[in-house]
């Protein structure tokens, strides 16, 4: 199981458009990626409902996990995405 920790850079948090971009990217990996807040249960990163319900705010750390071939590369891509201020783009 590959895991990564990343701090949410988007100024509005993982919300609205940034959440939608992240979910699309997670779905595109073809892997069952999960996302969790510190101390929280991991949820399906391919679910816009679950990701939005997570309510991750700007500056909060989340943990991404995935299993399977190419999991490390996939998570690196998602970490890079969350490290950008998606809302400002």
């Amino acid at each position: 199981m590959a895991t990564r920790q990343v701090s949410i850079a988007s100024s509005v948090g993982l919300h609205a458009r940034p959440a939608s971009l992240f979910v699309q990217a997670a779905t595109a990996t073809g892997l069952p990626v999960t996302i969790a807040k510190e101390g929280g249960n991991p949820v399906d990163a391919r679910s816009i409902l679950m990701v939005m319900a997570l309510g991750a705010k700007n500056g909060e750390t989340v943990t991404l996990s995935a299993d399977g071939e190419g999991a490390d590369e996939a998570l690196d891509t998602l970490v890079a995405l969350l490290s950008r201020d998606l809302d400002a783009e």
């Binding site: 949820v43 399906d44 391919r46 679910s47 816009i48 409902l49 679950m50 990701v51």
Partner: peptide
């Protein structure tokens, strides 16, 4: 439509 297809909801 996106909500209806959501894997989190399906789960």
């Amino acid at each position: 439509a996106m909500m209806a297809r959501d894997p989190g909801l399906a789960m």
